[in-house]
Design a protein around this nucleic acid. Structure first.
Ligand code: MN
Ligand code: MN
Ligand code: MN
Ligand code: MN
Lengths: 219, 219
DNA sequence: TTAATTATTTAGCTTTGTCTAAATTTTAAT
DNA sequence: ATTAAAATTTAGACAAAGCTAAATAATTAA
């Protein structure tokens, strides 16, 4: 099955939005892909034809097993390229998503497996997301929660769930990265902001919006 | 000026075929790009519109200075990726062209300049072709001639002018690569085949067709 | 210098992926 | 149970890139 770049992008976006089994809506997919709902409907018909998704009018979209396999391949390529850019070419984590968005479409098993070897077969990408192996299997991530829901006091940052340049740039500015250890000093119920303290630094207060997108686990 | 992948491929092909100032013909370009003359005519109109080529009906195609600049950027990306694949991922020289044909279309100055640094700013690619620098300047290649026209006896292989998998596989089989030193033992005028001898090996005879595509300079 | 051959262009059609505007279906609210 | 709002689909259009078949221009041969 030979997919176009657009088809791969759709499959990956469906994978991303399809938490568990819940069907992905036309509008959500259009928003995620920065396109229009009418375009999504058109593409849904094509992907159904290719047996990559289950789709019935007005009923939303889910990946078939074949579609999920395809999605995992694209995700693998995306995340390995992100590792390459950060580890080998010294890009910072907020710069790599867009480039990987293009590199992920070079389809060569040999290339991607050699790249993985070259990188030491990493299992997480620069944003803390797991990298599927050549068979589509991912190490199941150690349990992690959004910072705004953490109950332990001493925590370590394991991932960021929003990967917009804006959030990543903010985290850079505050010195927060994967592996950063922090302590929760206070919750402020007025706006659900959270005061945190990192070693050797004065404490800072972050918005609920930011806290929701920082994944942590107890230290 | 934002170019499509197809436009970049055309510009690169025109650059390749346009030796000196001679205009590139519609048919030659169609053959090079494995497409049809009618398609070339269509694209020529678009590229003229974008001021990348000079083109008048029936008069053939030449790159404008802007077009040449674009071509050199694409060539730079292509050849740097080939270096990456060979030097870092252990691909052999006959495998890299197709992959580079796709990778070359990821347009990011920052990416390609960092890749170049990472590779040690190489000046020739795995086939002996020069790599343009960030400003489009290439080290002018040291004088080289096709093996079938060499007059010195002791020679060193500097490049291959045909990069088909078939030729490269043949050269692999015979142990001929960039830097290989060889001696011309005999010319056979019946078919213009050439007998050569490499150090520590028995001599072998290669066809004119092969000899034409091996570039050498006197040792 | 005609005539034949070759090269190139034009015309018209196809596929992919997108859009807007209008129609329809589903969901939520009275 | 209607009605209003929101979500989704359809219809019709467009741009990019390709194709085939037919027309035209340029070149070569007789
Ligand atoms: Mn992508
Ligand atoms: Mn990532
Ligand atoms: Mn290419
Ligand atoms: Mn090359």
């Amino acid at each position: 099955m030979n997919l176009t770049v657009a088809e791969e992008n759709y499959i990956k976006a469906i994978y991303k939005l399809q938490e568990g089994d819940q069907a992905v809506t036309t509008n959500a997919l259009a928003y995620e892909l920065d396109t229009k709902p009418a375009s999504v409907t058109d593409m849904a018909k094509k992907l159904k034809e290719k047996k990559l998704i289950d789709y019935e009018k007005y009923q939303g979209i889910t990946l078939t097993p074949e579609g999920r396999k395809t999605a995992l391949q694209v995700v693998r390529r995306h995340r390995l390229w992100e590792c390459f850019l950060v580890d080998k070419l010294s890009f910072s984590w907020e710069e790599v998503h867009e480039l990987a968005e293009e590199l992920e479409h070079v389809r060569s098993e040999k290339l991607i497996n050699r790249l993985s070897d070259f990188l030491g077969n990493p299992v997480i990408d620069p944003h803390g997301d797991p990298i599927p192996d050549a068979h589509g299997r991912m190490a199941k991530p150690r349990p992690q929660t959004p910072l705004d829901q953490a109950n332990a006091k001493r925590l370590v940052v394991t991932a960021v769930s929003d990967q917009s340049t804006a959030l990543l740039a903010f985290l850079n500015a505050k010195g927060i990265k994967l592996g950063t250890q922090l302590e929760i000093v206070a919750h402020y119920e007025f706006d659900n902001s959270i005061e945190i303290k990192m070693k050797h630094l004065s404490s800072l207060t972050i918005s609920e919006q930011v806290a929701k997108n920082i994944m942590v686990r107890p230290l």
